[in-house]
């Protein structure tokens, strides 16, 4: 069968059409929900030390200076967050900014020996040119007596429940 239309092969037409479909696939229509783009979890990895993990979807990134962590109650005594080095980029509006992609592990010292709720505010964007309104995600953490079973209490909580609890940040 002759698959040529004039001088352009069907393959070329398909390639051309797919340039369009690839672009529209990358467009904002397919934007992930923020809690899927920036999957959050937190656990106590040893007494007095929380590890916060974000699994950042491909094509998305987070800003270092937008993270805010608070403990409820405040008396849980959250220390200063320790971030790994990110990627420095020169933003035309903000100058030098540090961003993260892929997996991000942040460590937070905590004084509490009991249970507390960690509230994490974060903000990120998609490469397609959309930025998310800051998202607040929470995790209930329980400091166990022995470091061996120090764990989070909300581990079995269905994702949906957590998503329902996720609320826009207070300012």
């Amino acid at each position: 069968m002759n698959l040529r239309i004039g001088a352009i092969s069907v393959v070329e037409l398909l390639v051309a059409a797919c340039t369009a479909c690839a672009l529209s696939a990358a467009a904002a229509d397919d934007l992930l929900a923020p809690e899927q783009a920036f999957r959050f979890s937190a656990r106590l990895i040893e007494p007095g030390l929380v590890e916060v993990r974000y699994r950042i979807a491909n094509g998305y990134y987070m800003y270092r200076d937008k993270f805010r962590f608070t403990a409820i109650p405040q008396s849980a005594g959250l220390g200063e967050a320790r971030f790994p080095p990110g990627k420095i980029k020169d933003d035309e509006f903000f100058g030098r900014v540090e961003t993260y992609r892929g997996e991000l592990l942040i460590r937070l010292p905590v004084k509490s020996a009991g249970a507390f709720t960690l509230q994490a505010v974060s903000q990120g964007c998609a490469d397609v040119g959309v930025c998310y309104i800051p998202v607040t995600q929470i995790e209930r953490l329980v400091a166990a007596r022995s470091s061996d079973d120090a764990t989070k209490s909300g581990g079995d909580e269905p994702d949906l429940l957590r998503r329902l609890r996720d609320a826009p940040p207070s300012r």
């Binding site: 070329e12 390639v15 051309a16 059409a17 340039t19 369009a20 672009l23 529209s24």
Partner: peptide, 10 residues
């Protein structure tokens, strides 16, 4: 062809 396809996609 590419531009037309793009326009249609857009």
């Amino acid at each position: 062809a590419a531009v037309s396809a793009l326009a249609a996609g857009y």
